[in-house]
Design a protein around this nucleic acid. Structure first.
Lengths: 216, 216, 216, 216
DNA sequence: AATGAATGAGATTTCATTCAT
DNA sequence: GATGAATGAAATCTCATTCAT
């Protein structure tokens, strides 16, 4: 079983099992959508790449759009998974005494996730601007939830005097910019450069910590 | 003359004059490409929006792709204009004694530019991933040039002890992430929120400055 | 099954079966190409005449040009078929003691073939001048092969003293001119005239025989 | 003044003078029509090749078809010129005692003419099959006239016992096949071969003479 | 469940022709 | 006379989707 296959199994295997053909279709669609974009990918192209007949795609997914949503929805869900686990706050209080520990843990966890789902991440950020319903879904189900959770976290560490006193939204914005900036540069913009990942992550964490530390 | 028209005149009016219809076509294409993406925009739609016959588009631009390139190319050029002016270094030495002044000037100048060309900026970042030739062009003509110039600037301020000792590439990456993160959040992700721009920019500058200041 | 259908089956039915629609498309294309020429025939016209949707044409033939080649290629092949049969020489030695017998057999065989494939022959001679790749193909695969075989035949009968001593190329040229001249006049230029085919062929054979007989 | 120009002047200069632009248009059209065919040649292409604006063509020729007719008509006229001169019969009686002299004179005269107007000849034979009105015109004004004249010539030499007793139509058909066969092979099919023109013409004349000589 | 031929709407592009300058 | 921008009809081709097998 290939990496690709494992990823697909993990992300898409909810209730019913996926047939072999369905997995092939998903894998082919993911590859093409990531590379050329949803609108520029034809269903016949996906069929050919997946090694199935054109009609087969429409047997499983009523429309091309549904195929996109099938791909994008679980990615969104998994993206915020760590932030919506029930005992997020408890974990927080117990595990991470310093904001730095929290940030480091978040970065490590999320970069690993994005890294092993880079194509899906690409599709997500490339297609959201073009599909209002995706945008809406993203804001409502993802951004809002993350923001709510994070707000408390920020307040928590601000109360402890570990973070500069600043509107939580701004803190979140900067943190997100910094982390996504790293991931995008690392895996999308210049993946071919030589990266010392450990050192670069360390620098990124330091940058964030200093940038957000309270002014003495 | 509308804002749109002024912008088009400024960006596209090189040698020959543009006819009225050409401007209309460019304006319509920019609007549609920004909103729905290049691949999902039909030339008939552009023609209708521009109030011209479909054939007219192809009289001026041999292909739909050429229309995209006509739109994107000058945007790229203008984007780096401030960094490639001949006496960039002189300006630097004379005008900005502190890195903070430099950063502040850069942010103000570039955010203003992006703000008044937001649709073009959207097209740029939305389409680059889908067109290898655009990507290449961007790397070769834009990223590389900016990097070369910036590298010297960073070295300059590092020598003066104003910035942390870190590979220039990392400094540039963090600076860019922070600035683009602001612009994208401000104008693309949540433009509908209430923004206190002055304060937010100030916070962003402070974040950057602290994040990059040498460790005491 | 119509005459048309039989001809199409015979010429185009290689490995896979042709669907009913494909035959209709080929028949319609042949008719239109012969009458108005390739360039002046639109695919929508072919579709209408064939009673299929325009898209159906492109499902079977990637481009209009491919449709032309599909039509023209087997015609070329069949045209030279009798000359490239393996034991062409044996047949020759045994069957035709006199050059006249050979010529007569050739004329009868080839005129019959052309007659029952007149539309395809028209397309062939009408389109070859406009398509360099067809021209090349014709020269390489048809003209050259026929020439090689014929050269030996000519030499054979010259050695027997039945034909005038003349460069084989010239003999072939005159023979071909005479035969094609008859076919073209008979079926393309003035098909509406009253032709006594038997007598005319006899005259043509006599003309050729006298024209090429050795000088006494 | 180029060869091309001289030819155009000679063929097209009837009453009014042709402007420089008109000559350029005609020359460009002739070149393109000969090479790619009328239907596959666009007026914009002709305009570009002629170095004039697209509109200019339509100032001189109402339609593209008219441009074709302007080119083809005088070619037809010149093609039969020698056969319709008033005293064709007189000339005949006096000048050519033997059929061979007549044939030789005809071949020399007409091959020279065709040779120096090869592009126009190509257009003529390539386009006649596609344009019913051209076909009609050709039959009515050219073929018929030539046939009438030639019939008398043939009868004349048959009466003198110099030609085989055969329907004049057949004699003409064979003569025409032989002559056109030579011209087409020489200048259109294999112009790149090494031709000993004098010898080849001599062979062709001999072939014709023997082919048509009375049976002893 | 799977196929792939067929469809028809629509996409991009071409082109002969017109017309204001 | 000449230009070339503009047109709109039509040409080639693409594509998501349907449906009989």
């Amino acid at each position: 079983m290939s990496e690709q296959d494992k990823m697909i199994d993990e992300l898409f295997n909810h209730d019913e099992e996926l047939t072999e053909k369905q997995k092939k279709i998903l894998a082919a669609a993911i590859e093409s959508f990531a590379e050329k974009g949803y609108a520029a990918t034809s269903t016949s192209e996906i069929a050919k790449k997946a090694g199935v007949a054109e009609g087969t795609i429409f047997r499983h997914y009523k429309t091309k759009k549904e195929l996109l949503l099938t791909i994008v929805a679980p990615m969104m869900a998994k993206l915020i998974a760590p932030f919506v686990i029930k005992d997020f706050n408890k974990v927080l209080n117990q595990d991470y005494e310093h904001f730095e520990d929290f940030v480091r843990a978040m970065i490590e966890n999320r970069t690993k996730f994005l890294m092993s789902n880079m194509q899906l991440f690409r599709i997500l950020i490339q297609e959201i601007p073009f599909h209002p319903e995706l945008k809406e879904q993203f804001k409502e189900h993802i951004a809002k939830k993350i923001f709510e959770r994070f707000e408390k976290v920020i307040a928590h560490y601000q109360a402890k005097g570990q973070i500069i006193d600043m509107p939580p939204f701004s803190v979140i914005r900067m943190t997100a910019s910094t982390i996504f900036g790293y991931v995008i540069a690392r895996y999308l913009l210049v993946p071919e450069a030589e990266w010392d990942d450990e050192a670069e992550i360390e620098r990124t964490v330091q940058f964030l910590m200093h940038g957000l530390s309270p002014i003495k």
